[in-house]
Design a protein around this nucleic acid. Sequence first.
DNA 1: ATGACATATGAGATATGA
Length: 260
Amino acid sequence: MIIATWNINSIKARLETALAWVREAKPDVLCLQELKCESEAFPSAAFEELGYTCTIHGQKTYNGVALLSKAAPEDVRRGLPGDEADTQSRYIEALFPFGKRMVRVASIYLPNGNPLGTEKFTYKLGWMDRLHAHAKKLLRLEEPLVLAGDYNVIPKPIDAKHPEAWVNDALFQPESRARFRELQILGFTEAVRALAGDQPGLYTFWDYQAGAWQKNNGIRIDHLLLSPQAADHLKAVRIDKHVRGWEKPSDHVPVVITLA
DNA sequence: ATGACATATGAGATATGA
C-alpha cells in the first residue's frame, strides 16, 4: 500500500501537476495540503476519472487539506480537536482498507508560525500541543496509523542545507523541534529517518526565491509519523524530488511510503 | 535585505507563505 503526502500549494493552480504525479505514482492514499480552495471548488472530477475518491476539508484562499484514495474512506474527521474556535482547515483523517485490516491516515498542515514573537508562533505551538493530545488518543486504538503532512518543522540541522539561516525562523525553533520530538516519543516512527538513517541532503521543500532549487538549498519539513502497528509494515520510503523540476511546480515535493 | 517568488483576491495592493 502506497501512502503519500504533498503540499500542493493551490490545487487549482497545480491541477495538471497533481494529476501527472498521481498517474505516475498511483498512490493508494494521497494526503494533500494547502489546497487554497473551498471544498465545493475542489476539482474532484479530474481525480475521479483516475479512480480516486476525494475527501476534502477546504478553506477559501488559505490552508485546506484533503485525502485522495482509491478506496472509500470511513470514520472521517475534519478539523483538529481541542479548540472549537479554530476555523483554519488544517487537519483531516479517515480510515482506509489495508489488506485484511484498516489504516488510519491523517493529512496535516501544521501552522508555519512566522514571524516569531507574534500570535502566529503561539498558534503554531498551541496547534502542536493539540496534535500531541489527539495523537496520544489515537495511539490508544493500537491500530496502523499514519500522520502525514507538512509539519513546518525542520527536525535537525541535517535537515537543512543551511541550518544557520533558519535559527530565527519558526520552523527551526527549539520549541517547535521539541514538540516534534515529543510526538515521536509518544511512540511514532518518522519514516524517512527510520529507513534513511542520518543520510544528509534529504529535502522536501525548496523556496521559489533566490534560485533555491538550482542551488539545492532545501529543507525537510514534510513528514510521515507511523504508529507501531504501521511501522511494523514500513517497507520503503522515498522523496519524489524530480517533481520540483517540473513545469509549474509546488515548492514542496511528495514524500511516499510503502506499507506491506 | 521585509526583498526575491508564487498564489488568491479582486481589479490595486495586500496577506500569506517558509
